[in-house]
Amino acid sequence: MIIPIRCFSCGKPIAQHWEEFSERSKNGEDKKKIMDDLGLERYCCRALFLGHVDLIDDASKFKKF
């Protein structure tokens, strides 16, 4: 849906890096390098970024209730 505020496993706040990550990876930069730059060291935080699909733009169009 939307990027989680914190990493599920270790609790590190990661959401502030998501927009830079998605912007830079859209421009074709190596994802490993971006995550190293952003300070995501543990594989729990890295997995969240690699696996995340931002579906909120699609989901918002539909009624909530």
Partner: peptide, 12 residues
Amino acid sequence: PIANKIPIVKLL
């Protein structure tokens, strides 16, 4: 908040 760029929600 520790950072200004944490997305909370997106609004249409």
